[in-house]
């Protein structure tokens, strides 16, 4: 499997990188760590390239490279990186430009998986989607941005399953898998079950009926999902609730919960104007949310 972990800011969030590393290690997945910096105005793009070349000649690191190196250090401390005899990372190639349109440092994970540290420039969603397309990614992991419009863009427009690492903690998570019979929620059941089994976590299965009259449908849905989890060998408990799905998820989610749900089926323009349930869940719960496409 191939995962992408997005980092930002002046320094990467240690908790987010650790969280992403643990998830990737559980799957023994290839992991790319991506830093997207704002696009330079076109009028100075060549001059910026020249300045960067000069900085490299003088062996001065670019700000984005610093963030990636800090992320590499965290992964090294986490034990996710294969090291040589003197404890340094085994490097496939050093940081270099022009690797599928990005700067890239390529090292190896502890079991030989590929760990790539990539620096891109431009709009964050477009650049992440370029990575999704070129690397056929299975999951994109990022922290919960404080800026709603960025979070909204990330949740609604990334062409891949996403894991929003909100308040990541070094705890054993309880998986709260939300199902509603839609194709994406069925995929969420499978993805969540697989992940829970890898990390040996308890699982709760949640099915919500909006009205009392539809309770039987929610129960049928829970039963079907329960059967597929049992087949997959995942021990779980089942919860059926009546009410607003976002309210019910928010009521059940604690800091040590990992919410798993499918993407919204609403048209993109509606999601943009009214928001979507996954976005509302991300905003309301105090824990990570996995949104499966």
């Amino acid at each position: 499997m191939r995962f992408l972990l997005c980092v930002g800011g002046v320094e990467p969030s240690v908790e987010t990188v650790r969280f992403g590393a643990r998830i990737a290690r559980a799957f023994e997945a290839d992991l790319s760590v991506l830093y997207v910096q704002p696009r330079v105005p076109h009028a100075v793009r060549e001059e910026m390239r020249l300045a960067r070349e000069k900085l490299e000649e003088w062996e001065i690191e670019l700000p984005g490279v610093k963030v990636l190196k800090a992320a590499q250090k965290i992964l090294l401390q986490e034990g996710s990186v294969r090291t040589g005899p003197s404890g340094e990372a085994v490097v496939r190639h050093a940081m270099k430009p022009g690797v599928r349109g990005a700067y890239e440092l390529h090292i190896y994970g502890i079991h030989g998986e590929n760990l790539r540290f990539r620096l891109r420039e431009g709009d964050i969603v477009s650049e992440i989607n370029k990575e999704v397309e070129s690397d056929q990614l299975d999951l994109v992991i990022f922290g919960a941005s404080q800026q709603r419009h960025i979070l909204q863009k990330l949740v609604h427009f990334i062409d891949c399953s996403i894991l929003v690492a909100k308040n990541p903690k070094d705890v054993k998570y309880t998986f709260l898998i939300c199902t509603d019979n839609s194709p994406t929620s069925r995929r969420a059941e499978l993805f969540g079950a697989k992940l829970a089994r890898f990390v040996n976590s308890p699982v709760q299965l949640l099915s919500v009926a909006k009205f009392k009259t539809r309770e039987h449908m929610a129960m049928e849905c829970a039963e079907r999902a329960s059967n597929s989890l049992t087949k997959a060998g995942v021990a779980h408990s089942t919860i059926v609730r009546i009410g607003n799905v976002v309210d019910e998820i928010a009521a059940l989610a604690r800091e040590d919960t990992l919410v798993v749900m499918g993407t919204s089926r609403m048209p993109a323009w509606k999601k943009l104007i009214f928001g979507s349930k996954p976005l509302q869940v991300v905003e309301r719960v105090p824990c990570p949310v996995l949104i499966v496409m």
Binding site: A51, K54, L55, W58, I60
Partner: peptide
């Protein structure tokens, strides 16, 4: 101006470092 800025950036950053 832009070329000189690109040339001199590493010089002053080196000095800062």
């Amino acid at each position: 101006e832009h070329t000189v800025a690109a040339i001199m950036l590493p010089v002053v950053m080196s000095l800062i470092r």
